[in-house]
Amino acid sequence: MHTARRDYETCALIGTGHFLSHFYMLCLPPLFLAWRAEFGVSFAMLGLAVALMSGTTALLQTPVGFLVDRHGARPFLVGGTLLMALSVSAMAFAEDFRLILLLAVLSGVGNSVIHPADYAILAGSIRKEFMGRAFALHTFTGNLGFALAPPVIAALLLVMDWRGALGLVGLLGLPVVAAILWQSRILVDQPKRKEKTLGGGALLTSRPILAFFAFFLLSAMAGTGVQAFLITVLGKLWGTPVAVASLALTGYMAGATAGTLVGGWVADKRGSNLLGFVVLLTLAAVALLLSMGLVPWPSLLLPLVALVAGGCLGASRTPRDVMLKEACPPGEVGKVFGFVSAGLPLGGAITPVPLGLLLDWGHPGLILPVVGALLVLSLLCAGGARALAATPRRAAAPAE
């Protein structure tokens, strides 16, 4: 019998692998100074290691999604997690920085499996009434991996060298793989389609899926803008001390992470009526973000405002994922989530340069309005995606 306990066990297994995938993405930057001293490479080359890992992940998510839908998610989840972890651990033995770059690519190959395989398994293993909370826990564990990677690596470097630190964190993947194999009976793959649907390419270029991709892309562009430039903007506009502005950014990130859990609970309670909730929360976040660029908030209130803004955006993320899952034809979850979630790293790559140019040209007051405009545009895409996906005939029509 499928129980709530099994739902939580499934989320724990899937979430642990998702935590590691995000953790490994940010475990390399704290090592840059040690690598620069050891290998004598430029900062551009050091950045290339992270770019190769994240870029490989983004590029391969969609083709891996096709394989997950065709052959099942569990073998790919086990193999991907193992490759991702062992590649990071093998960096500890590198004597040439070029080998680290190669291993970063291999880790990215393993990491590319995580999103399509995770969502395909969640679609088949979790009760419908718990799906929102399952997606929320999945997002939460990933954000936790991002948050913990830098301080964990920094702490390890206090007691061992960089080789020991990488070898240790890489080996963390082995018990995760063992747990997945041991408990694989509870990981049920997504239901297969019973009737002919659009081909994979036609599905991914259909209007609703492209609209969801734009929704994810624009949301990521806005979020990256806040994360990258909030401290600078507050300093230039109001002379906010770095410590206070950093606390505001920390509040924003904490709110965005915790908000996903609230969004999951709401998604399960509201069922399919989620678009209004997403619109309301996003507009509230836009108003709060704009206020930080228009009003010199007192130092005690500024972090609280940022916390609430981040919480609103975080709470809107889980309903976004649930709406996409509801738009997926049976048996197509892997490729759809692989394709659409690739918009997240792409959005993160697009934003920093143009927003940085606005700062270079002396317009810090435009940064938060641009972020707000991106979020409003994302809502238009969300509404279009929801409307198209709700109409089977129109949802089946490929984009022209």
Rank of each mutant, 00 (worst) to 15 (best):
L300A: 15
G310H: 02
R70M: 06
L288E: 05
Y24C: 07
S291W: 07
P75K: 04
D161K: 11
G40K: 03
T62V: 11
G365Y: 09
L198R: 09
L290Q: 06
P303G: 09
A349E: 09
R185L: 09
Q227A: 14
F39E: 05
L218C: 04
G79E: 04
T141I: 12
A315H: 04
K335Y: 09
T81P: 07
I126M: 10
V308R: 06
L198A: 11
G199E: 11
P398C: 12
V295S: 11
Q227W: 12
L313V: 12
Q190D: 13
R74A: 13
L368Y: 07
P330R: 10
A309D: 02
L280K: 11
F140S: 00
P369I: 03
S89D: 08
H22Y: 07
V308F: 08
G251A: 07
A73M: 04
W238P: 00
L82G: 00
A155P: 06
G200C: 04
F93D: 05
K196I: 15
E95S: 15
S107H: 04
G201Q: 13
S378N: 00
L158T: 14
T205K: 13
T240S: 08
L379G: 02
L358T: 04
S184G: 12
G384C: 12
A258G: 15
R133C: 01
W297F: 12
D321T: 12
G110P: 02
F229C: 01
L301K: 07
V159T: 11
R36S: 15
L33R: 13
A58I: 08
T139V: 15
A315G: 10
P151H: 02
L26Y: 12
L359E: 01
L103K: 00
G199P: 06
L366H: 12
D7V: 13
